[in-house]
Nucleic acid binder design. Structure first.
Lengths: 215, 215
DNA sequence: CCGCTCGTGATTGTGAACAGTATTGTCGAT
DNA sequence: ATCGACAATACTGTTCACAATCACGAGCGG
């Protein structure tokens, strides 16, 4: 029984997938037909998504899709790094033999997709791997926060996989994470995860410099 | 011009200060007079506070103040630990001389209150110190998350200061944090903060065991 | 030609009424 | 006395209309 997605879910999806671009105006009346919901539900959705950091609302001036700057994307990833390190450490202490198998299977398939240069599938496996770690960690609070942070930075992360040489780099880091988790070594898992996200942050910083030059 | 607190702010305050206890029913019509706001604003406040984890809403059954178990309080503090370590590290790299002075003044006053056994003032200084670190860190994303986590666990933290011997212990840890920050040593600041919150978690775990025996 | 004021349209904010749903209390049968 | 059906109640969820506010542009004076 997978309950039907709420208006909030649909609106969130439209934003993180980019169907509604940054800065786009969100007029309540328009959203009622787009989401097929009453104005009350739409208002509620806007309030929720504002709390999630996906939307900005100004009094009497309406809501817009939030523009997240590169500087903010870096902060988001830093926070994610702190939390996902915790998640990885916990996963290392809690993973069952079946879990370890699953993680290893995921990285081996990631290796194949890197060879095949299948970016879309790689990105998907990437998500699956992180999701698996979150499930194994069973840390409700951290998982909720991480999920939110991921959504917020979605607009900036999608181009990561397209960077030349990046998948190989990323693959190695994921191997290190999974190795630490399967070895039940929480400290190593945390540092491996931190290093992985630190390298993501490096890329973002690099882009930030380019962007500044362009202006 | 400090803008007047919204209905959401007032309701949040009532919950974190314990004026509305865990499990208490939140009837919209009652809240309209308690907060002096329309039902729309009350609804919006409930949605927001649900996102903040302070309130639970069930369809057609109304909202209640969320009960946070000790196990959850531990998770919350773990997540806070991860994020506040990041905050402390950033504060260490960004603190100005004036900031360092302010931090040192705070710990010396904390020392005096410990001698005087002034629990209330100590708790207040504790908050001020953490708040100062957050301000100095200038890490919007992490600060927002930490503020939220702090509110969530508020119901469990208030009794920490009453534990015998705890203030002395806590004071030492805060000294270590401030020392690392003033020394501009981010790694040391992060680990000092992590140790501080680890000891808080230890106390919570200790309580959890007692609680289990009591059942 | 520039700046200011004032109207107008669009959109949010709010209050009231109504409908839908869970809960509680009551009555009757066994 | 206990249980089940059923009515009464209390609340939430939704809709509607209207008031409040802001952005934009026209008109006017300098």
């Amino acid at each position: 029984m997978t309950r039907t997605p709420t208006a909030t879910d649909r609106l969130r999806h439209a934003i993180v997938t980019g169907r509604l671009g940054p800065g786009e105006r969100l007029v309540e009346l328009q959203l009622t037909e787009m989401l097929d919901a009453g104005r009350g539900a739409v208002r509620s959705a806007l309030v929720e998504l504002e709390k999630e950091g996906l939307v900005i609302r100004e009094a009497n001036r309406g809501a817009t899709v939030r523009r997240v700057s590169l500087a903010e994307a870096i902060q988001i990833t830093e926070a994610r790094s702190a939390l996902e390190s915790l998640v990885a450490a916990r996963a290392a202490t809690r993973a069952t033999p079946a879990d370890r198998r699953e993680l290893q299977d995921l990285v081996t398939e990631m290796g194949r997709t890197v060879e095949a240069a299948d970016h879309a599938r790689y990105s998907e496996l990437n998500s699956l791997l992180h999701a698996a770690l979150r499930r194994i960690s069973d840390h409700t609070v951290a998982n909720e926060l991480v999920a939110n942070l991921r959504d917020r930075a979605a607009g900036h992360e999608y181009r990561l996989a397209l960077m030349p040489g990046r998948p190989e780099h990323s693959l190695q880091q994921h191997r290190a994470i999974v190795a630490a988790v399967t070895a039940a070594d929480p400290e190593a898992a945390a540092t491996a995860m931190a290093e992985h996200l630190a390298s993501v942050i490096d890329v973002l910083r690099h882009w930030a410099q380019i962007e500044q030059k362009a202006v």
